Simulated assay, not measured.
Amino acid sequence: MGRVSGAVSEGTAPEGNAGVRVALSSASVYPLAVHEAFAVSRSLGYDGVEVMVTNNHVSQNPDKLSALSQQYGQPIVAIHAPTLLLTQQVWGKAWTKVEMSAAMAAEVGAGTVVVHPPFRWQSGYAENFAEGVQRITAEYGVTVAVENMYPWRVRGREAKAYLPHWNPVPQSYEAITWDFSHAAIAGMDSLEEMRTLGDRLSHVHLTDGTTNGRDEHLLPGQGTQRCAESLEFLVTSGFSGVVAVEVSTRKAKGADERDKWLGETLAFARRHLGQAKET
């Protein structure tokens, strides 16, 4: 499915470019509906959409998602499972969330399912998480990529919220999603961690953040992470996954400013992935 004409020139990859795809996460237009993510993705020249499963019924329906994908000419490149605190009521039990996400990913043609590591109180799920992820990956033929999180702090002390840990790098997971905002909170250097991960790095959430303890999801370049250098590293390392833009636009003053921010982020990604057109 091709990109539409009329997109911002710097944000549009050259014809025939076989490099890293840059997708738009539906979280970037939250709290608007999934439909808006597909529309914005097409109008700005993104390569596809990552759908975050939420309470929104369209985000849970593979037939409706496939219809949107066809309508807007935007492939669905990833499904973000409803494993956040705010989606605890979506699709029931923890393993059900992951399995239904994998089934939907396979149905809509998405190659990746993004999941968060388990919370400590999710007994049965947390203890067998790595094995379960491996089983679902094999059963559904999609990559289940565990996302890096960050330590929770209560009164200045770390509270152990995740099991086995918020940091997936030392774990046995075969595929990992890397989020720059989460790395910033954790005080991690994304570039160095990407070098450590090697071919276990399967998916990237492009954003930025600081060490102030809030999950800010800033535009790249507004925080402390080496986003530009990290994207350049992806090119030289032969990364074959997707870079999904997951920035917060909730403070934008209307659709025009939101689209400006998302267009600038796409241009940033294209530029540092070596995909920007010469002007």
Rank of each mutant, 00 (worst) to 15 (best):
S123Q: 12
W91R: 13
Q171V: 06
S172T: 13
V114W: 07
W178V: 07
S123T: 15
A175L: 05
G92T: 14
T87E: 12
A184T: 12
I176V: 15
A106S: 09
A102F: 07
H182S: 09
S181N: 06
F129P: 11
P164I: 14
H182G: 05
Q89M: 14
E192A: 15
P82N: 05
A102R: 02
L191T: 10
L201G: 01
A159V: 10
T196F: 04
G187K: 09
Q88P: 01
S190C: 15
V154H: 09
T83K: 00
L85Y: 05
T83N: 00
A186Y: 06
R155G: 03
F119P: 03
E193C: 07
V144A: 05
A81Q: 04
T83R: 00
Y162T: 07
R153K: 13
A184H: 02
L191S: 08
S101N: 01
E192K: 15
Q88A: 15
L86H: 10
A184D: 01
D199P: 14
A186F: 04
P151F: 05
E158T: 13
M188V: 09
T96Y: 10
H165T: 14
G132L: 11
V113N: 04
S123F: 15
T196S: 12
V113I: 12
R195Y: 01
H80D: 08
D189C: 07
Q122T: 09
V146L: 00
R195Q: 15
P118I: 10
H203G: 03
Q88G: 04
S181C: 12
M100Y: 02
N167Q: 05
A186W: 05
M149S: 02
K93M: 15
T143R: 07
V114G: 06
H116V: 14
A159R: 11
A145M: 00
P117H: 13
N128A: 13
M100S: 01
W166G: 08
T143F: 00
E147L: 05
A81I: 06
H182F: 10
T112I: 15
A110P: 08
T137S: 14
A78I: 03
Y125N: 01
H203F: 15
H116T: 11
V77S: 07
P118K: 12
V108E: 07
Q134I: 02
A145T: 02
A145Y: 05
L197N: 02
K93P: 11
N128V: 11
L191Y: 11
R153I: 03
R155F: 14
T196Y: 08
Y150S: 06
V133A: 10
A103N: 01
Y173N: 04
P170N: 09
Q171G: 13
I176F: 00
A106W: 00
A103S: 03
E107M: 09
Q134L: 12
K93G: 11
R200M: 09
V142W: 02
P118G: 13
V142Q: 04
S101G: 06
T112V: 15
E99D: 07
A106E: 08
H80K: 03
L201P: 08
V142K: 03
H165C: 10
N128C: 03
R195V: 07
Q134A: 15
E127T: 12
K93W: 12
V154D: 01
K93D: 14
L191H: 05
P170Q: 09
R135W: 03
A161V: 15
R200L: 13
G141D: 10
G109Y: 04
E139P: 06
E127H: 11
